[in-house]
């Protein structure tokens, strides 16, 4: 991944984190993604992406309280940083600009 460009899956993960607000930890992210994107999401993949995004500065994380269901291990909750947020906004702007210059007839009948 070069520069500040977001990959498709990275963007999805970040959007999920934003949607989950303060409850965003790896397993929950997987579950939510699976539900909305409708595809099988592997923990390993999500984990690697989270790790990469954090090192890029888009995410920050804190450890929560230990819980019983995880063998006493604490969860790591992720939050978007400002850089992360602006990267998402930027990505969305790019898309919208592109959408705006697409003539209507191209997607005629597909979008209402």
């Amino acid at each position: 991944m070069k520069g500040t460009n977001l990959g498709e899956f990275e963007e999805l993960v970040m959007l999920t984190i934003a949607a989950l607000t303060t409850e965003a930890y790896s397993v929950a992210i997987c579950d939510t993604l699976e539900k909305h994107a409708g595809r099988k999401v592997r923990l390993g993949v999500v984990h690697a992406v989270l790790n990469r995004l954090e090192s890029k500065g888009y995410l920050k994380s804190t450890l929560g309280e230990p819980s019983n269901e995880r063998g006493g291990k604490r969860k790591r909750f992720y939050l978007l940083t400002n850089t992360g947020k602006s990267a998402l906004v930027r990505a969305r702007e790019v898309r919208e600009q592109l959408w705006n210059i697409i003539p209507d007839f191209v997607f005629k009948g597909l979008i209402g």
Binding site: S26, H47, L63, G71, K73, R74, R76
Partner: peptide, 8 residues
């Protein structure tokens, strides 16, 4: 810790 928790 986090990873271990996830796997568990």
């Amino acid at each position: 810790e986090d990873l271990q928790g996830d796997l568990i």
